[in-house]
Amino acid sequence: MPKSWFLRFGLITGLLFLYIPIILLIVLSFNDNRSVSVWSEFSFRWYGELMRDDQLLSAAWLSVRVAFISASFAVVLGTLAGMMLARFGAFKGRALFSGMVSAPLVMPEVIMGLSLLLLFVSMEQVLGWPEGRGMLTIILAHITFTMSFVTVVVQSRLVSMDASLEEAAMDLGARPAKVFFVITLPLIAPAIVSGWLLAFTLSLDDLVITSFVSGPGSTTLPQIVFSSVRLGLSPKVNALATIVVTIVAIGIICAGIYNARQEKARQRDEQMAQQGG
């Protein structure tokens, strides 16, 4: 904790601001009453209703599949793009490429969604593919906007990595492709994992772009949530939120503990090495 009372106050205010809504959702998810202002009794009623909502469950399943597939493709494309930007120096068209990679990070989603839909419509007119809108078009759209995030994560890992490691491998006789798989890939693996998780989360969460490019038969979880929330409060959503927050919190805390342990072990090793052990 910082010493200055002002900073403490600022930090606590900021964190309270971030967490009060989330904590409130969790508390309300156990409220038997529909209203947010009346606490009747503790119950798992909304979790039960959530589990019986087939429409919501099938949308969730679609979202998970879409997120899994798009995150996996986004990781491949994003890693290649990160390699290009971090290691390929000044290739032809670099400015355009880096522009296209970083623009989706801030591009308003309505623009991305609209433009991708118009692309798919035009492609269907000209090529006859993709036929209609559905899971395929959602996946293509999600790969496009999540790969930028993967690229940024991978690129910043590569930039901070000593490029002479790759040169050393090459100097010792490994061909470029082998250098990539034996040296580069293992060393950027943590960035690739966090890039995948980021892409997965973003895809799972996306509403706007999905709304543009989805078809009648493919409704994702955010679309269901949005349409029920638009009509006002829906306690089922509280239960869903609690589940999401729990999963994410467990994941992040585990990752945090794992990192802290790694760091501790590394520090111990370094100390040992300094003492000549």
Partner: peptide, 24 residues
């Protein structure tokens, strides 16, 4: 690291749900 984690954690949970929380 833990404080930073606290800042990032909401970002990993659903954007839609966090906006929805403010209705209540």
């Amino acid at each position: 690291a833990p404080l930073l984690m606290l800042v990032i954690l909401p970002f990993w949970t659903s954007f839609l749900i966090r906006v929805y929380a403010w209705i209540g």
